[in-house]
């Protein structure tokens, strides 16, 4: 069982921060324009964003660590095996002979930490779920070439 690169925690922290900010803005608008119009609204303006802020703060601190702690993958003899999930735990397996192609992708945040994502496609539609995040770029390339040897033309 292998773990991801620890830097992925920072990447996820940024994701969670971004999401928290987004929800704060949304609730701020909601609070200001809609909720304050309700007669007898028991809370002051800015209450809901404050709640969102605290929830967001906690998840931003806790979730990346937990996610990292529970993320494992393994290249077994015949299959790729993924095991991850904090609240919902998911074990997935994709036999090498089912893999159709493999992408390496990297977004801006990941580039900051020099990490990449390996996206594994099978003919199954949910195959898009097979993503290994937080791999050092050279290692992702290594994995890609390794897995490529097994890929087949027509796996349907």
């Amino acid at each position: 069982m292998m773990q991801l690169n620890p830097d992925v925690k920072s990447v996820w922290t940024i994701y969670y921060l971004r999401r928290t900010l987004f929800f704060i803005v949304i609730t701020l608008c909601l609070d200001y324009f809609a909720l304050s119009e309700i007669p007898k609204w028991p809370f002051f303006i800015g209450f809901t964003p404050l709640v969102v802020f605290f929830i967001g703060l906690i998840t931003t601190i806790v979730m990346p660590r937990l996610k990292y702690k529970y993320w494992f993958f393994e290249l077994r003899a015949d299959e790729l095996y993924l095991k991850r999930g904090v609240l919902t735990k998911i074990d997935s397996t994709a036999p090498y002979c089912r893999i159709q192609h493999i992408d390496i992708s990297q977004n801006v945040v990941e580039r900051l930490f020099n990490l990449s994502r390996l996206v594994i496609y099978t003919a199954g539609t949910k195959g898009a779920d097979l993503i290994i995040p937080g791999l050092p770029h050279y290692y992702a390339q290594e994995l890609q070439t390794k897995l490529k040897e097994y890929t087949v033309e027509d796996a349907v």
Binding site: T88, K89, G124, A155
Partner: peptide, 13 residues
């Protein structure tokens, strides 16, 4: 079969 998943949510666990 293409891929297999075993999934358990918090409530299921």
């Amino acid at each position: 079969i293409q891929t297999l998943h075993k999934r358990s949510s918090y409530f299921q666990r």
